[in-house]
């Protein structure tokens, strides 16, 4: 049985290898958290009709707010909503309505960057940064865990319950040297 078994744990079946089992659970939890980061399809119930999708995709240009046409309650937004309804009724698609406004007012009228070309960076970079930093943290945790295990093993062999506090300075230096060598060999 591994030295990190806790008294009272059953040494067989589900809890036969606590360290490995714990690491497994940790991975499940870590993966769960990362999966939670995966963008959920953006389809809130409130924005399902073509009219609502078009209103949601355009910013109001009334000059008094940073709101989408859908949320702004000013006169400009009301006029744009009527215009969108008219265009959709005449057979235009949502994309065509949006493009017509972009042609008239420029890219700035879109409420969010498009998911192509340079603008794709806006969407990708935050998640990429979090996932990269997450990978770094996993690597660091493993390294620190290995360091802790070496120390625990050395101290455990000495039979001391309270690790470093009871070591003489000579022993401590020796331990540090062993640890350095161990890390070099990893």
């Amino acid at each position: 049985m591994r030295s990190d078994a806790v008294p009272g744990d059953r040494p067989r079946g589900l809890y036969a290898r606590p360290g490995r089992r714990a690491a497994g659970i940790a991975r499940v939890l870590a993966i769960g958290s990362v999966l939670a980061l995966a963008p959920v399809p953006p389809a809130p119930a409130a924005e399902t009709t073509p009219q609502e999708r078009a209103e949601h995709a355009l910013m109001c240009f009334c000059g008094c707010s940073d709101l989408t046409i859908r949320t702004c309650s000013c006169g400009t937004a009301a006029r744009v909503k009527e215009d969108i309804a008219r265009r959709l009724a005449s057979g235009a698609t949502v994309d065509q309505v949006i493009e017509a406004y972009v042609a008239q007012h420029g890219e700035q009228i879109r409420s969010a960057p498009t998911k192509q070309g340079f603008n794709l960076l806006a969407w990708v970079v935050p998640f990429a940064a979090i996932l990269a930093a997450g990978g770094l943290i996993v690597a660091l945790i493993r390294r620190w865990q290995a360091r802790g295990a070496v120390e625990g093993a050395v101290v455990g062999a000495g039979g001391s319950a309270s690790p470093l506090a009871n070591l003489s300075s000579a022993d401590r230096k020796m331990l540090e040297r062993v640890e350095r060598e161990f890390r070099r060999d990893l």
């Binding site: 958290s33 990362v34 939670a36 980061l37 995966a38 963008p39 959920v40 953006p42 949601h56 995709a57 910013m59 940073d66 709101l67 989408t68 949320t71 420029g106 890219e107 700035q108 009228i109 879109r110 409420s111 969010a112 960057p113 603008n119 806006a122 969407w123 935050p126 998640f127 979090i130």
Partner: peptide, 21 residues
């Protein structure tokens, strides 16, 4: 050289999964 808007739909889409995590 193109000024764009990053409005509520972007932040909602980015922030919601992070909040869940």
């Amino acid at each position: 050289g193109v000024k764009i808007t990053v409005g509520p739909p972007f932040f909602n889409e980015i922030f919601v999964p992070i909040t869940f995590a």
